[in-house]
Simulated scan of single mutants.
Amino acid sequence: MRLLILCILVALSASVGTAVAPAGVLPKNSAEQFELAFWNSIKDSKQAGDYEAYLQAYPKGRFSALARARLQQLKAAPPQAQAPPQPAPGKPAAAQGQAKAVAKPQPDKSRAPPAPAATPAPGPAGSVATIKDCDACPVMVALSPRPFTMGSNNSDPSERPAHKVALHTPFAIGKYEVTVGQWRQCVQASVCPAMPSLGNVPDNLPMRDVSWDEAQLYLKWLSTVSGKPYRLPTEAEWEYAARGGTATRYWWGDQMKGGNSSCAGCGEPWNAERPPPVGSFTANPFGLNDMNGSVWEWVQDCWHSTYKGAPDDGSAWVDGSCQARVIRGGSWRENGSYMLSTTRFKYDASVRQSQNGFRVARSLD
């Protein structure tokens, strides 16, 4: 009898272990493992939108009952008192309050045509030249492409096969992820939706809780304001930029090392509730910040479960239904095993999730 009980306990223990820990760096390519990874990424969240996103994707999922209970609990909780607005860098809080009291409506300068300026030509591969097309535009880094190996044969199946990609067109990509302050300018122009979850979030945090479809609204607005064709980076451009000219697992080497990215257990600054301000960690060799961790970043490509048949010229892979789009780079809620330059995942293009953001790109030809 004791032996039978012991066997049952061992079996239960094994099943519990399987239910809470995804295998490998990323979940294996199956619906069950993707759902498990989704749940593990939000199970400690205090954002109602995260549980709504889970239920939209998995209305009859394994954790749907728990998600509904958490959602009901969060919506029933009394609203918390909002923190006072953060003072702008270099400006005393008192001065900000005075300015707010006497401020009058100002014309939307972001709609004015940008002053003509020559776009700096990117230098040799790996060199850094910054671009800022207009007052409202994010700072970008201009890159000259060269062939590189994309993906990995030693990690998750979705990253296979490792393959040569020959990028031919110079492009620019955001030095940082799009920030809350930059998104708010689009909201003020009545183009982008206001996000209730932002509240009094400081302007210098990365914008998140935004769907792929909503990111397109920002890009169209920015293209109109700047006169330049802004877009999301292709998945190949993103990985080329994230690697920073390296061929190692991370841009800093083959071993995880704290202090290089915003992720759980990867060093300060870190906060369980939200990512740190953009640029809080060292830039990679191309001068790009927060490619690893911070927030997952949307790219242009549709999701494919492997790289078999992927374009070899760095263009976006957009055949198929495209209901799911690719996100890259991990977020501050994941641990260091998600910070690899090859890490990729998928998300429904129309769904918001509090870990998902983006950075801008445009071609320079």
Rank of each mutant, 00 (worst) to 15 (best):
V295E: 03
C186M: 09
Y240L: 11
K164H: 10
D301H: 02
A77S: 05
A19I: 10
S152M: 07
C134S: 07
A272D: 10
S315V: 01
D313F: 09
F63S: 12
A283C: 07
P79I: 04
K104W: 02
C266K: 06
W221K: 11
G287E: 08
P113W: 15
Q86R: 11
L364P: 01
A272S: 05
M195C: 08
P196W: 03
A69E: 13
G199S: 08
R68D: 15
A11F: 01
A125W: 02
R70I: 01
P170Y: 02
A76N: 08
V360M: 01
D301N: 13
P193R: 05
R70W: 09
W252M: 09
N260G: 00
L143T: 10
Q80F: 15
K60A: 06
A241V: 14
R325V: 12
N200Y: 14
A129H: 13
G259S: 01
P202R: 09
P202C: 05
K60G: 05
S341M: 13
P27A: 15
Q300T: 05
A162K: 15
P285I: 01
G259A: 03
A99R: 03
A242L: 02
H163R: 14
G17M: 03
G174W: 00
R274T: 10
P269G: 08
P202A: 10
R160M: 12
T179K: 07
E52T: 04
Q73F: 15
L143E: 12
M150W: 10
M150R: 15
S261A: 12
E297R: 00
L232M: 11
R274D: 06
K308Y: 12
S211G: 06
P79D: 14
Q323P: 09
A272T: 05
A81W: 02
S110T: 10
G244F: 00
C137L: 00
A11N: 06
A115I: 02
V201M: 14
N260S: 05
A103K: 00
